[in-house]
Design a protein around this nucleic acid. Structure first.
Lengths: 112, 112
DNA sequence: CAATTAGATAGCCATACGGCTAAGTAACTT
DNA sequence: AAGTTACTTAGCCGTATGGCTATCTAATTG
């Protein structure tokens, strides 16, 4: 599995996110992926390379056609990391909740 | 809201992810955030700046102490984008499912 | 076989990134 | 008032990024 640095670096560019979104709907050849993007092919190929390094895509070549497809498990790695932060955060809210409930309970004790 | 480029760029570095993870457990001052990281303070401050640009953190200063806290809504922006790709992908699987079911139904027609 | 197509590679360029040191400022502490 | 603390700013340095053109190879097509 690619490391988180290269996974997130893959997402930090609109061209690359567009490629991922396109490939999420199914495989495509290089020229088809490149077509919507107003840049020279070698520039675009660098983006594909970054996506490959990040574990977002894989490809193989038949004749002169290279077909790329998404590796959707990489999405999971990214989502997992974000989810862990969320649970840290929500755990914190939980503890705040406990804290506030304790305050409330103490208030009730004061009333008694 | 920060754009997706800067949001994901914020995550593409281990120091910055560690800061986010730390802040997910609660606010902290700059020196406290910097302590675990073996780098000069100005280098570390650049990372904080990247996180601020990416909408991951905000801060304010009381006396000479700057306190940073997480902006957890930014996690949502990142998760939302990933979720959209997932639903594209899963939508594709759904359509594949429909396709396979159609094949199966046609098979039944052949039997009849 | 000649021409075209699909992609790959090499290398140039400007800017961004991620590290550093040195020096500055503002706020406590003594 | 002097010293220390907590950042802050300026600026240098090497590498990475993201764009380009020119050129190359391999596979089809005519």
């Amino acid at each position: 599995m690619a490391n988180l640095d290269s996974i997130f670096h893959g997402l930090a560019d609109p061209t690359r996110r567009a490629v991922i979104a396109r490939l999420a709907t199914g495989p495509a050849r290089v020229s088809e992926l490149a077509a919507p993007h107003d840049m020279a092919l070698p520039s675009f190929l660098k983006h594909l390379k970054v996506l490959e390094t990040g574990g977002w895509i894989e490809s193989d070549k038949a004749g002169r056609i290279r077909t790329c497809r998404l590796k959707p498990e990489t999405t999971k790695a990214a989502e997992d990391w974000l989810g862990q932060q969320r649970s840290l955060w929500e755990g914190r809210l939980d503890r705040l909740d406990v804290f506030l409930n304790n305050l409330y309970d103490e208030g009730k004790n004061d009333e008694a």
